[in-house]
Computed example of a mutant assay.
Amino acid sequence: MGWGDDWEIVISTIILIVISMTLITLRIIGKPVFEISFETLVIHVATIVAIASCIYIIISKRRKQI
Rank of each mutant, 00 (worst) to 15 (best):
M1S: 12
M1D: 09
G2L: 06
W3H: 08
G4K: 09
G4F: 05
G4D: 09
D6Q: 07
D6F: 13
D6P: 06
W7D: 14
W7R: 13
W7G: 10
I9V: 15
V10G: 03
I11L: 15
I11Y: 08
I11H: 11
S12T: 15
S12I: 15
T13I: 05
T13F: 05
I14C: 13
I15M: 12
I17H: 04
I17W: 04
V18S: 10
I19P: 05
I24K: 02
T25V: 00
R27C: 00
I29S: 00
I29E: 07
G30T: 00
K31Y: 13
K31I: 09
V33I: 11
F34C: 02
F34L: 03
S37W: 10
F38Y: 12
E39C: 04
T47Q: 07
T47Y: 04
I48N: 06
I48M: 12
A50R: 02
A50D: 03
A50Y: 03
A52C: 10
A52H: 02
C54D: 15
Y56R: 14
Y56K: 15
I57R: 07
I57W: 04
I57D: 06
I58N: 04
I59V: 14
S60T: 15
K61N: 06
R62G: 00
R62Q: 14
R62L: 15
K64T: 14
K64I: 10
K64C: 14
Q65E: 07
